[in-house]
């Protein structure tokens, strides 16, 4: 049977992708941001940790979804997805290959479990999805695993609540565990941490709040499930709301987890970069 073997969170700042694509990861500005991923790159390359499939939770930044269509939860079910042209040409990264059988299975299972998923086939994937892949896998000719895109609306209000996201994670876990193929599946939550990309408050960073969020992602997700949107906005900036997506990852891991690795760095462009690797305890 398929099983959830680990959860990873990571920022998906577009400038990180540009640094990888332009070969700037070792310059003074970027070196400390990338150094925190060395551990994970080594860990994930080991056969016992390497996922067969990653369910990659991210938000589309007005690339596949414009103002005509705003799905709260959309799961990519096609066989493959091309990198999006976000205004400066597509990133030079591999095509994203899906595990379509598992994606369709998760879609069906979650809908039956009362999560009204949007199923999407034709979709280009933007930096929200491709930057975490670059951080974890570098620059291979092909991504080393299958990837199921799960896009969450965190742009047009209201986004889903943290509790809804956590519960969707639980439903995804049930779906994965009822899939007959023997697969190691990871769930990644991306975006965050504190950042604000607008107005006179732009550049807001709340390291204390971010660190407590990381602590509780491991130890007290019940507190995070109850956190209202307004707290994310006040404490972590208007774009800090992306952190609700991390709770999908956390919900999929079950009650108790072990924290394997953590990295926190200010600043990557406008953003506090947060990264954590968790594995289920049972």
């Amino acid at each position: 049977m398929a099983r959830i073997t680990a959860g990873i969170t990571s920022s998906h700042v577009p400038a990180i992708g540009a640094a990888v694509d332009l070969g700037n990861t070792q310059d003074d500005y970027w070196k400390p941001a990338f150094a925190g991923f060395d551990w994970t790159k080594e860990w994930i390359a080991k056969p016992e940790n390497k996922p067969d499939v990653v369910i990659l939770v991210y938000n589309d930044h007005a690339s596949a979804f414009d103002m005509n269509l705003i799905p709260t939860f959309a799961i990519g079910c096609a066989d493959e997805f091309q990198p999006a042209d976000e205004g400066w040409g597509p990133r030079p990264v591999p095509v994203v290959k899906n595990h379509a059988d598992l994606a369709w299975h998760i879609a069906q299972s979650c809908i039956l479990d009362e999560f009204d998923m949007t199923i999407i086939n034709k979709m280009d994937v933007d930096h929200g999805l491709t930057v975490p892949l670059s951080l974890m896998f570098g620059q291979p000719d092909a991504w080393p695993c299958k990837i199921i895109p799960l896009a969450v609306n965190v742009v047009t209000y209201p986004p889903p609540s943290g509790n809804r996201c956590y519960n969707l994670g639980k439903a995804i876990r049930d779906a994965v565990e009822s899939f007959p193929e023997d697969l190691k599946v990871q769930v990644w939550g991306t975006g965050g941490m504190s950042h604000q990309l607008q107005g006179t408050r732009a550049g807001l960073i709340n390291a204390e709040w971010d660190k407590k969020f990381l602590d509780d992602l491991t130890a007290d997700p019940e507190r995070l499930r109850k956190m209202p949107h307004i707290e994310y906005l006040r404490e972590a900036g208007s774009e800090g709301i992306e952190l609700v997506m991390w709770l999908i990852m956390r919900g999929a891991l079950g009650k108790d987890v072990r924290e394997l690795h953590r990295h926190y760095h200010v600043a990557a462009s406008n953003t506090a970069l947060g990264h954590i690797v968790l594995e289920p305890k049972e």
Partner: peptide, 20 residues
């Protein structure tokens, strides 16, 4: 949008960002 130059803003981010 901040009333700062790009350089000033970049330096603010490098020294920990804008306090809440």
């Amino acid at each position: 949008m901040t009333g700062m130059s790009v350089e000033e803003y970049r330096n603010m981010m490098l020294s920990g960002g804008r306090s809440p």
